[in-house]
């Protein structure tokens, strides 16, 4: 069999069932919007009830804060999606370059965060030592604060290390695909 017969087989392929595809897409979107809609309505109703009863419990304050948090997440996600959409509608070569730039930018920001931590750790150590030497902090307070700071820094370091582990193979992959453009 020659390549032409393979090409003919390809072009004779029957179209997929479009009704099923459309139905699946509709269902996925309907589910997502239903969950978001219900959460928003629930929050608004609960806030309204709490305000009407003039019961200023921590819950009354927490609910609008929660709604604001959800709003912030949605806006952030929307902005990210806009960027993703822009990439997805570019020509493939341009989109690949945009993706590589995005990955490089994130790697740079991770590196900056790491450097910032490397600079601030000795600063905090000196600061704690000085406070203790001046009698402003007792041994227990120094120990507690050091433990808390160590936890925060270790958490950040783990996050940076994990993210770099994800980004570096992506950068290599993108560079490899972009090299195919030449």
């Amino acid at each position: 069999m020659n390549l032409e017969s393979y090409e003919a087989a390809w072009r004779n392929q029957a179209a997929p069932t479009p009704a099923d595809l459309a139905r699946r897409a509709r269902r996925a979107h309907r589910g997502r919007f239903l969950i978001l809609g219900l959460a928003t309505v629930n929050t608004l109703v609960a806030t309204g009830v709490a305000i009407a009863n003039a019961s200023f419990s921590p819950l009354t304050l927490a609910l609008p804060l929660l709604a604001l948090g959800v709003l912030a997440i949605l806006i952030r996600r929307q902005l990210h999606l806009r960027q993703a959409w822009r990439q997805s509608t570019e020509a493939v070569a341009d989109a690949l370059h945009l993706s590589l730039r995005e990955v490089d930018q994130e790697l740079t920001s991770q590196k900056t965060l790491g450097l910032y931590a490397a600079l601030t750790v000795p600063l905090f150590a000196v600061l704690l030592y000085q406070l203790h030497a001046a009698g402003k902090m007792n041994q227990n307070a120094v120990f507690s604060l050091s433990l808390m700071l160590a936890g925060v820094y270790l958490g950040n370091a783990a996050r940076i290390w994990y993210r770099r582990g994800q980004l570096l193979p992506q950068r290599d992959h993108l560079q490899r695909v972009i090299a195919q453009l030449r």
């Binding site: 959409w85 509608t89 989109a95």
Partner: peptide, 28 residues
């Protein structure tokens, strides 16, 4: 494709647009 649909401008064929969006997403 659903997400990218509002960004479609009629200067390109839908087929070309669909290919762009789908290939970019597949490569990503």
């Amino acid at each position: 494709l659903w997400d990218a649909l509002p960004f479609y401008r009629a200067e390109a064929q839908p087929q070309t647009f669909i290919y762009r969006v789908a290939l970019n997403r597949a490569l990503n």
